[in-house]
Design a protein around this nucleic acid. Structure first.
Length: 307
DNA sequence: CAAAGAGCACGAGACGTTTG
DNA sequence: CAAACGTCTCGTGCTCTTTG
């Protein structure tokens, strides 16, 4: 959309097809990926709870223990943009050179993040009028000290890490908001996404939801939006997409071990060196590997790996 | 009772500040 | 200096209420 400001100036008989003279859209040489929520607050939180075993155990009990391994470096906007450009929204796969591709499915999220593949669907824009949901949300907002919306992710992460703050149901809900916004799905504005909190009416039910499917849907929608206009923010699971790509496309001179969850392998320094190597060796070039076996889910992964 | 307006919640995006 | 972080304004869609 281009707003023309001067159409009212003596345009008595000028043709309506005014060509905007300012084509200087200062288009950068290459698209960049910008995110609203980085993993930085989450990493700070993890560092702060390193010696609080009850909080780590609560996260494991929720099914999000794999995220305790997260140690992403700062985003590389150019690399992320090139990677995201290769993600096909139509097929849900990363398109590689020579017509090869990596299909990305729910199970891949489980392999990277280790989060639950339960049977219940996470839906963040449905049935927000249920009484128990409204009541829960009201109590949660009182807990985090706001009357509407949500505090910023960094604020909540700091409070969660305070050793004087015990693990409660609302602590778990707040953790989920931080984790989802940093790793799975955020918004294009600075306010954290909270619509999925309907899954936490009973916090013991959190592991029974399919957080992997939720992550894939987030990737599809956010990639679609970003590819329409690459100047937008990206609100999808950027850490997942990168680590999944790193594991499945092996470089001849860069072969780290493969282990579940993949976040436990792909840490800051390894990711940095891999991205450096990407720029030198060529993106989307390498050997496509099959998925690693998933503990406890090996049975339902019957997808064929295409050669 | 139904249609329209007020108010609320939240998303889009610009812009300023902090940080490494 | 660039990325991350935070504030602000504006737009939109929904709901509740008001009023003819």
């Amino acid at each position: 959309m281009f707003t023309v400001f001067f159409t009212h100036v003596q345009c008595s008989d000028s043709p309506p097809d005014v060509k905007p003279p300012q084509k200087k859209k200062k288009t950068p040489a290459e698209p960049c990926v910008k995110v609203r929520q980085s993993t930085a607050p989450f990493k700070a939180f993890l560092a702060a709870i390193a010696n609080q075993p009850q909080k780590r155990q609560a996260i494991i009990d929720m099914g999000f223990g794999g995220l305790l391994e997260l140690d992403m470096p700062k985003n590389d906007p150019i690399f992320c943009a090139r990677l995201l450009s290769r993600y096909s929204v139509g097929s849900g796969s990363l398109m590689l050179r020579r017509g090869r591709e990596i299909e990305i499915r729910d199970i891949d999220v489980h392999l990277v993040y280790g989060i639950p593949l339960g049977g219940l669907l996470v839906d963040d824009n449905k049935d927000n009028d249920a009484a128990d949901y409204r009541l829960m949300l009201e109590e949660w907002r009182e807990y985090v000290g706001v009357q509407r919306g949500s505090p910023y992710v960094s604020t909540m992460a700091t409070q969660l890490a305070d050793a004087a703050v015990p693990v409660t149901d609302n602590w778990k809900r707040t953790f989920l908001v931080v984790a989802v916004n940093c790793c799975i799905k955020s918004t294009l504005n600075p306010q954290p996404l909270t619509g999925f909190l309907s899954t936490t009416i009973d916090v013991n039910n959190i592991p029974n939801y399919n957080w992997c499917k939720y992550t894939i849907e987030s990737l599809l929608h956010s990639a679609c939006s970003w590819q329409e206009d690459t100047t937008r923010f990206f609100a999808g699971p950027l850490p997942f997409l990168q680590v999944c790509y790193f594991d499945r496309l092996q470089k001849e001179l860069h072969k780290p071990p493969r282990a579940f969850p993949l976040l436990s392998v792909w840490k800051r320094e390894l990711i940095r060196s891999r991205i450096d190597y990407e720029f030198r060796s060529g993106l989307a070039m390498g050997t496509v590997l099959p998925r690693i076996p998933a503990p406890m889910h090996g049975q339902q992964d019957d997808e064929q790996q295409q050669q």
